[in-house]
């Protein structure tokens, strides 16, 4: 099954967090790999969304959405850093 990356859940994450999240930084609770959410290995063809660490494939994030409810499990991430003013895009 082909995997995607965190860009594919940019919309869902922005909807949940109210801000652009693909540049947010996460630290894997299992192996310590630190990177931007865009770099997570993401599986969207599941009963929910699963995002895994690009370093060790441990589950970082699970998201399930029904019509009215959203369930989040971010327990695989030890820490997340969200920038109110995201860093400038490439080219600047």
């Amino acid at each position: 099954m082909e995997r995607l990356d965190g860009n594919a859940i940019g919309g869902v994450l922005a909807e949940i967090f109210g801000t652009e999240m693909t540049v947010a930084v996460g630290v894997c609770g299992s192996c310590g790999t630190t990177g931007q959410m865009a770099e997570m290995h993401v599986y969207v063809r599941a009963p929910g969304i699963v995002a895994r660490c690009p370093g060790c494939e441990s589950v970082l994030v699970k998201i399930v959405q029904s019509e009215r409810r959203t369930w989040l499990d971010f327990s695989g991430l030890r820490t997340m850093q969200i920038d109110a003013t995201p860093p400038p895009a490439a080219g600047r």
Partner: peptide, 9 residues
């Protein structure tokens, strides 16, 4: 037969 997966095969 849709393939759903939560991780690498």
């Amino acid at each position: 037969f849709p393939v759903l997966s939560a991780g690498p095969t």
